[in-house]
Design a binder for these strands. Sequence first.
DNA 1: TAGGCAGCAATTGTCAACAATTGGAATAGT
DNA 2: ACTATTCCAATTGTTGACAATTGCTGCCTA
Lengths: 232, 232
Amino acid sequence: MEKIQTPNQSDQLPESGTLASRTYESIKADIIDGTLPQGSKIVESDLALKYGISRGPLREAIHRLEQIKLVIRVPHAGSRVVTLNSKMMEDIYTARESLEGMASRLAARLMPDEDIKSLHRLLDQHEQNINEAEGKVYFQHEGDIDFHFRIAAASQNQWILENLNGELYQLIRMGRHQSGRMPSRPAAALAQHRQIVSAIEQRDEELAELLMRRHISGAWKTVKSILEENHE
Amino acid sequence: MEKIQTPNQSDQLPESGTLASRTYESIKADIIDGTLPQGSKIVESDLALKYGISRGPLREAIHRLEQIKLVIRVPHAGSRVVTLNSKMMEDIYTARESLEGMASRLAARLMPDEDIKSLHRLLDQHEQNINEAEGKVYFQHEGDIDFHFRIAAASQNQWILENLNGELYQLIRMGRHQSGRMPSRPAAALAQHRQIVSAIEQRDEELAELLMRRHISGAWKTVKSILEENHE
DNA sequence: TAGGCAGCAATTGTCAACAATTGGAATAGT
DNA sequence: ACTATTCCAATTGTTGACAATTGCTGCCTA
C-alpha cells in the first residue's frame, strides 16, 4: 500500500527529547488506543517502574496529560484516565464545530492557492482509498484527521491550531478507538470535504464556515447515535 | 462602594492547596500585572529561592503556566515570560470570537430565566459604575470579564468555559494591564452587552451568536489600534 | 449489626543532591 | 580585527529519599 505523505503531525514517540516528553507520548498513545483503559487508576510509582524512569519526569508527563484532559487528577488522591461520557463528547464536538468553522473561514481568506491544490490531491487519495475499500477504516480516519488538520493549519491561527491538534483531536481519536466501530459513511464525508475545499477555493468565507460547521455537526449526530446504541 | 458579588471566579491565591498550586497562582498574578515583565527570563533556582520552595513544585507551576501560554519554554534552554505581539493577540481575539459566539448561542438555548434576570442586574450595576465614573477602569474591566464569564458558564459547555476562563481571559487581562490605558468606551460596550442579553432572553440563538461575535470583533479593532499607536 | 473512631498502609507531595546539556567566555589561529 | 574552537560555568533534567495526606482496615461501642 502506498504510504500517504503525512508529515508526522505532532505525533512522535522517538528516542529523542527529554524523558518526560517521551514518556508523555507513550502514555498518550496507550490511553488513546485503550491499553490504559478509561477510568483506570494511575499510580505514579507503578508507571515509573513500568517505563523505567523515576517519578519526577513521570509526574511531568501526567501533568501534561491532565492539561489535554486525557487524565483527571485530584490533589493528594491520585489520577485516573478520563472516562468519556456523552456529555463530554458533545462539548468537544461543539467546541470543535465553533473553532473549525472559524478556521475554515480563515482558510478561505488566507490559504495559498498551491496548498489548495494539494488539498485536492489529498481528497483524491481519500477517494481512491474508499473505492479500493482496501484502505481500512483506520486509514480513513487518519485521513479525515489529516484533512481537518490542514484546514486548521491554513487558518494561520496558532491558538486554534494548537487546541484542535493538541487536545480536541486526541480526545476524538480516543473516542473512536474505544467505541469499536467508527466508519461514519466515508463517502458522504468525502463529498462534504470537497464542498468545503470548493468554498475555500472560491474564497467564500461565509460558505466555508457554514459548510464546515454543518459537516461537524452532522458528524456529532452520527457519533451520538452510535454511542447511544452502544450503551443499550 | 458596594461590593459586587463576584464569586471568586477561579482566581484564588489562598494559603491552601499544594505548594505548586499556590506558587502557580502567585507567579500567574505577577506575570499578569507585569511584576515579571514580558520576555524576562525565568530561572528555576532563582524563583524557587524567591518563593521559598524547592525546585520540584516550582517546576510544576512553570509547566502549568506554559500550558496556558503565559510562559514559553524550550527544553534544556529555559523559560521566559511570553511576549505579546500583535499577531498573538489577534489569534486570541479570533479564537475568543469563535468560542464566545458559540457560548452565546448555547446560552440563548440553555440559560435559566433566573440567571438571565441576574445578568440584567449585573449590567445595571455596570451602568451605575460608569455613570458615577467612580468605578475606576479597573473595576470596569473586571466587570466586563465577569459578564463574559457568565455567558460562558451559561453555555454549560465545560470545554469552552475552561478554555476561555483558564487561558484566553488571562492573556487578555495581561494585555490590558501592560498596554497601560485600557478603557475602550465602556458605554458602547454596555449597550452591546444589553443587546446580547436581550437576544438571549428572546431565545434567539442566531442573533445572540451574531451580536457576540460582532462585539468581540469590534473590541479587537479597538485594541489593535491602541497597540499600533502605542508602538509608534 | 450498624456506626464511628484509631491506627496503618499506600500514595502523593516535597526536598536536596547528582547528571546532562547549553550558551557563552576565553583562547588561539588566520 | 574577525572567526573558529575549546572549555567552563550556569541552568535544566533526573534521581532517590523523606514528609504529609488520604482513605481503608479492623476494632470498639452502642
